[in-house]
Nucleic acid binder design. Structure first.
Length: 446
RNA sequence: CGGGGCGUAGCGCAGCCUGGUAGCGCGUCGGUUUUGGGUACCGAAGGCCCCCAGUUCGAUUCUGGGCGCCCCGACCA
């Protein structure tokens, strides 16, 4: 993409309403525009990041066996009356009426709807397990939206719903999601830790929130340092292997990790030696939940078991705040100049700066690089503006592309261009061909 | 929902206290400068001063009401 033809409204000054760093940087980098309190338009750069995050979530959900669907944003109130939540939900739910004066609502979540779909088609133990998910916009009329995209009223969420014949099987579905989440967040370059959450109506150990550790996080978190260093890495995972997933579950959940909601200071001290006690800030980006027959009972989602008895299915729901992740990644990865995108979610793979726009040799070299990258399927943002170099670098640093290629006549005389890492600032001179190869290597795995 | 604050050009702000229908910086646009880390100079465009009422000869300014937005707290992906 040539910058002169793109739509990238960057701001030099920070809009007054933005307090936290991700909100400020998203506005300055021209990623979003506020439409009203807690509601945003996604501008081209922001939309690119959102789509890349979505893509990773899709891939990891499906790898874990979840099946993509798409349910509507607008729902009928009737189903919510069936589950009893129409009255229970409160003013956070946006209620609307259609032209026939029927009660409708903009979905804050989809348990009722998915359960209705399940019960309509699935009636035998042979039909389970099933895990259906979608990535869809939700609306929750928060009393106080804030932190830009991180706590909007309208937000993009991945929500998955599992249906199993009994609790042990449901727990395996739960473990599938837990492991899938660990992979998902790791791929985005995030350190996300599952933490014991309020267990809800069923109780037990099967409710976890995933918190990203970031200085500006909303919640205080308390955890065992061992968890910070745990990674899945590239270990082979067989999502159908109950024992393997249980082992991973145990590895990640047996050490102390709680938010201020569930924190127990005495227990923290008893379980974790002082040297390993970590108190930090975290941003919630995911929530997984086993709730048994909470919805299948009232909504009549029953299947016949092998003995011919009708039993309510055991369910769980599993959310990832997709739009929130955009802000959360920025919170976890930025410096005083701007955003630093992980390669896996960057809006463009490479930024290219022509130091002397209008110089025949420089222009030609940039065009050649541009088409080489295009041929490799790498997205390049080519700053072809007639601007001073400083302004171009500042823009690249603000929008946080992980790699920058700098082209100018002096370097070209020696046959080189510069390749600069946004994260380390390290600059290496190499031939244009070597620069293309370097980028190819870096992005090959992703 | 409790507490606090703000609404003036695309963005950041001043002016309001002490009424006389607006100004600064950045950005934008047109030139000059041909530039190796936010360059300099010249010129220009751009405002129902959030809305409605009241007071007044006259309201961005004073009074009342409304709307919008932000921040702190309680709640959430």
């Amino acid at each position: 993409m040539r910058l002169t033809r793109y739509f990238l409204p960057v701001l030099k000054e920070t809009p007054a309403e933005a307090q936290i760093v991700s909100h400020r940087l998203m506005l300055r980098a021209g990623m979003v525009r506020q439409a009203s309190a807690g509601i945003y338009s996604w501008l081209p750069l922001g939309y690119r990041v959102l789509r890349r995050i979505e893509q990773i979530v899709h891939e990891e959900q499906q790898r874990a066996g979840a099946i993509p669907v798409l349910m509507p944003t607008i729902q009928s109130a009737d189903l919510w009356r069936e589950s009893g939540r129409y009255d229970a939900y409160g003013p956070e739910m946006l209620r609307i009426k259609d032209r026939h004066d029927r009660d409708m609502l903009y979905g804050p979540t989809n348990e009722e709807q998915i359960t209705e779909i399940f019960r309509a088609y699935c009636s035998s133990y042979r039909d389970v397990p099933k895990n259906l998910y979608h990535i869809q916009w939700k609306f929750r009329d928060e009393v106080r939206p804030r932190f830009g995209i991180m706590r909007g009223r309208e937000f993009l969420m991945k929500d998955a719903y599992s249906f199993d014949i009994d609790k042990p099987s449901a727990i395996h579905s739960y473990n599938q999601m837990l492991v899938s989440y660990l992979r998902t967040f790791e791929r985005m370059g995030l350190k996300a830790v599952p933490m014991r959450a309020e267990s809800g109506p069923i109780g037990g150990d099967y409710a976890h929130e995933f918190l990203i550790l970031a200085e500006t996080g909303e919640s205080e978190v308390y955890l065992d340092r061992d968890l910070v260093d745990l990674t899945l890495g590239d270990r082979a995972i067989d999502y159908s292997d109950w024992a393997q997933l249980k082992a991973i579950f145990d590895q990640w959940t047996s050490s102390y990790a709680r938010t201020d909601d569930t924190h127990d200071e005495a227990l923290f001290h008893a379980e974790v030696p002082e040297a390993r006690r970590v108190t930090a800030r975290g941003i919630e980006v995911g929530h997984i939940f086993y709730f048994g027959t909470k919805y299948s009972d009232p909504l009549g989602a029953l299947v016949t078991n092998p003995d011919g008895e009708k039993v309510a299915v055991h369910s769980g729901s599993y959310g990832i705040g997709v739009s929130r992740l955009v802000g959360a990644i920025i919170e976890a990865s930025h410096d005083d100049k701007g955003i630093i995108w992980p390669e896996s979610v960057t809006p463009f793979h490479v930024g290219m700066v022509n130091l002397k726009q209008g110089d025949a040799e420089s222009d030609a070299a940039c065009e050649a690089l541009y088409s080489s990258f295009g041929a490799l399927g790498l997205d390049v943002l080519y700053d072809d503006r007639d601007e001073r170099a400083g302004a171009k670098f500042a823009t690249m640093e603000l929008i946080g592309l992980p790699w920058r290629i700098t082209v100018g006549p002096r370097g070209l005389k020696a046959g080189t261009v510069e390749v600069t890492s946004r994260r380390t600032g390290e600059t290496t001179e190499m031939s244009p061909d070597a620069a293309v190869e370097r980028m190819r290597q870096i992005y090959k795995a992703l």
